[in-house]
Design a binder for these strands. Structure first.
Lengths: 326, 326
DNA sequence: CTGAAAGCGCTAACAG
DNA sequence: CTGTTAGCGCTTTCAG
């Protein structure tokens, strides 16, 4: 391995000068700089990130822990975060937690994290009881659900309002038997609360269908099973776009067509939502604003900011497409 | 920051003993070990990855460079690779290259890579002329297209055979005006060659539709435009599932229904393929075998293997679904 | 079974 | 503008 020492020797300067050149610091005579660069090229020198990190205490990498990479919503968000971070000169390492509390805790607390200058944590499994675990000596920004309050910056989805608006839209379209396709495993779901509020406001009967997982197949199975068991509904508000797309498939399996027999709405506005057949009515959070705000908050903390923890609610719009209109 | 020194002092042992405990090495008296673990817990000690890396020369992280994270196919493959690597005790950092040659070169050659013990490179922009750039002092395994031959392990897609089989399937279904939805920017496309072979074998006329990008929207636009300009086809073999799903959308925009008016096949078998409406006939490469083989090859190289470069062709099957059958 | 010494590659602080 | 010194936290080596 070629070290700074080697380059310094070859160029007839000190390692410090090589360091100055490599880090583009001012006050290096052009002539010297040229000699150093030539030596770097000739020897094929690359700075050793471990040495630099050990010295500076920074790695230039932020971690991004997501429940699942293979999920339209997170895949898209990862793309946005990677772009945003790259603009600010940071790399992003992805950690997959499988939405499991243990894995999330492991990501936060094990040595792994020392490879990161900060962590974006899209948590799905942690609860109020775990907030103490989030008190670590590097910055964390929480992303996604707003299920508990740790003293950390927090980017939250417009869960309650978004789900309420989607449900109101279905009501306005004329649906009266509106089911909510609910996530499993948690009693705390602001989107369900939003749905329930809209339903209660006009005196309709709430109908809940529970899925096993958050993938498309789970949505298809749950809706297919419910319909074939004789459940009568004329609309479904799904917890996510993925589930909504699965619901369309499940309806097809039960011989129902969307939107003719059944209106469907999603949540997330993943890229596919605009392009599936039928295209999907959904709540669209602004993904790039999300990524931008999350990365900015984190970098500010990494730079030492001590302003009180902030909560940023992602702006959203209802996008009406084919799946809910006739 | 708590260091090994601190722990050693607190436990009344030497740093070396702490190291031995942390790394689960044998020959530490149980009693000593208990004392050390207690101190670690009390002080909240975490090993510093930079220090360890600097000393050992390894980081425990492999890089995975993909053209695009926000792409069904790669998102799914990333999930498989992360799982596979985790089983082997490795972390995965994702690099996004946007399929650009410059970015791919940057990933390979800049200092960034020193953070990785090895690199999985799913290349899309490099050509024969660039193979010299891939001669670096850490292992690289190439993934995906087989457009050039570098002296490296290479996992290749069953491009030619897969596309030929998909096209033959469309012919067997009765289609006679079969278009190939081709990727942009490259003259080298083994999938197109497979399509052309199948077409030529039965004396049909080849029809090529070119897309601008590889996302769903591009497929929709290209097919929608071609059909509305009067192109008459009764089947489309698409370069990828993404494009196929877009093609279904584009056909709908032009008033055609799949499979009634138009048969469609894809390539990749992304999770959505089974769950879209209509479900998508496609070539299914074995993703988990892909991930397993890629990670295994890379770890073998990292362990010092010097066997000649290997080429592994991913096994595949044709999965017939609704989009191509009436 | 445990410890002492040395050094991995880099850069902060200061001196010249 | 350039060099010297020192040390970041860890583990390898070898001695006890």
């Amino acid at each position: 391995m070629v070290t700074m020492q080697d380059v310094a020797r070859a160029a007839g300067v000190s390692p410090m000068t090589v360091s100055n050149v490599v880090n583009a610091r001012p006050h290096v005579k052009p002539e010297t700089k040229k000699r150093v660069l030539a030596a770097i090229n000739e020897l094929g020198y690359r700075v050793n990130a471990a040495g630099r990190s050990l010295r500076t205490g920074r790695t230039g990498t932020i971690g991004f822990a997501v429940p699942e990479v293979d999920n339209q919503y997170f895949a898209h968000l990862i793309g946005c975060v990677v772009d945003e971070a790259a603009q600010q000169g940071m790399r992003v390492a992805i950690e997959q937690t499988d939405a499991m509390r243990e894995t999330e805790i492991e990501v936060v607390s094990t040595s792994r994290n020392r490879l990161y200058d900060g962590l974006l944590l899209s948590t799905a499994g942690l609860t109020d009881a775990d907030t103490a675990l989030l008190q670590v000596d590097y910055p964390i920004v929480l992303l996604g659900e707003s299920l508990f309050d740790a003293p950390l910056d927090h980017i939250v989805m417009p869960n309650f309002d978004g789900a309420r608006e989607a449900t109101e839209h279905l009501i306005a379209q004329g649906s009266r038997r509106i089911a909510y396709l609910r996530r499993p495993d948690t009693e705390l779901d602001p989107r369900r609360e939003g749905y329930l509020e809209a339903i209660a406001r006009v005196g309709l009967e709430p109908i809940l269908i529970e899925v096993e997982g958050l993938d498309i197949a789970s949505g298809a199975r749950a809706v297919g099973a419910a319909l074939s068991q004789g459940l009568v509904v004329d609309a479904i508000a799904a917890f996510t776009d993925n589930l909504a797309i699965g619901a369309v498939r499940g309806a097809a399996d039960a011989g129902l067509r969307v939107p003719d027999d059944l209106r469907v709405t999603g949540f997330d506005n993943v890229p596919l939502a605009a392009l599936s057949v039928p295209s999907l009515t959904t709540i669209a959070p602004d993904h790039s604003t999300t990524a931008h705000t999350a990365v900015t908050f984190l970098l500010e903390r990494m730079a030492g900011s001590t302003v009180p923890p902030r909560t940023f609610t992602i702006p959203h719009t209802l996008i009406v497409r084919e799946s809910s209109t006739r």
